[in-house]
Design a protein around this nucleic acid. Sequence first.
DNA 1: TTGATAAGTAAATAAACATTTACTTACTTT
DNA 2: AAAGTAAGTAAATGTTTATTTACTTATCAA
Lengths: 198, 198
Amino acid sequence: MRPKNLEKEEAIRTIALQIIAEEGLENLSMQKLAKAANVSPRTIYIKYENKEDLLIKLFIEEVLGAYEKAVLEKFTPDMDFTKGVKKLWQNTFQYLKNNRHSFVLLQYGKSSPLLNKAFQQANIQQGHFFAPIHQFLELNAAKGIIKIFPQDVYRALLFSPVLDLVKEYFDYQERPKQIITEKIVSECCDAVIKGILK
Amino acid sequence: MRPKNLEKEEAIRTIALQIIAEEGLENLSMQKLAKAANVSPRTIYIKYENKEDLLIKLFIEEVLGAYEKAVLEKFTPDMDFTKGVKKLWQNTFQYLKNNRHSFVLLQYGKSSPLLNKAFQQANIQQGHFFAPIHQFLELNAAKGIIKIFPQDVYRALLFSPVLDLVKEYFDYQERPKQIITEKIVSECCDAVIKGILK
DNA sequence: TTGATAAGTAAATAAACATTTACTTACTTT
DNA sequence: AAAGTAAGTAAATGTTTATTTACTTATCAA
């Protein structure tokens, strides 16, 4: 049996993310992707059932999976609260600023009903994303270190700002304004931490 | 001369937002829209040059414009800092939770390169969106009431969490978790304010 | 009332779309 | 080295797409 050419598989994923980042999810077509990845349309259908399947796997596995791994690098739920949050912010900013293509699809995950639904299903079926962060927050809430909120609210309070900062970091390249540096990210993180501590 | 039928114009915009919210921007087509709005495809092209023009006008005028107006309701830049931020959060949550269709396209504005570019251009050409908020923050920074950050960073810190809370409010309807109430929104707002005060 | 005119329609156009068919290739197993 | 097989290709499928053409309608100004 002829074995799979892993380079082709990777090209499909990489080029798909690139097209989405540059032209938008609205403008990704199977034929355009095949041509750009130097592959026959049929080849895409070996690995993916259809276009929706491709998008969902790209989003869940390629983007969310890798993003989660990068964010949780050197993080443990039993860390000191301030140190833990700072580490998570650092990891997030570092990873996303070096992976703009992933960042764009990640943002689409908050808009597109297809990806949104896929995320919720994956979250239930294959275990929750960012589970160690949940644990971390529960632990610190129980210890009385931070204010009590529903789990999902912590994410809004603690982590949505850093995603916005990444977006501003990329926007910088397109219009003149102050660049987002690691120092600014760190100072923002301090402000967020101050707000959530009891 | 036969006058424009304003009902048709509004139907086009309303149904477009509805399709985007339910099926995604990826799945909005001019023919689908025409059919759903009970209008000939040609009628859409009277008001809009092409599909991109429709999307941009929908985003900038219908969504961003109305959103800005609602958020700034009863807000003035010389308000007390805490009162001002609380008012902005209240307005945001109230308006968006009652306008889910607008919220979805608003979120697409952070993903789609087309809408993103359109936003940046509109921001420059027709004056900055949310200018009173800029003023408000500058004033409070000058008075030494809040920490000093670049203007765009304030938005990330102060306002991205409330958009995330709106998203969670809508997600509630699809999977069981704690509902986002006005009380929780208000408590989150307090935390954010605490973090940014000097 | 009528003539001008932009709003509106239904149907058509050509291009692009997702997916499949029919075939070839390259590798493993025997 | 030959057979078997999944990976891979090029070209075709029928559908849907954005947009236009050719025509009709409704209103206003004269």
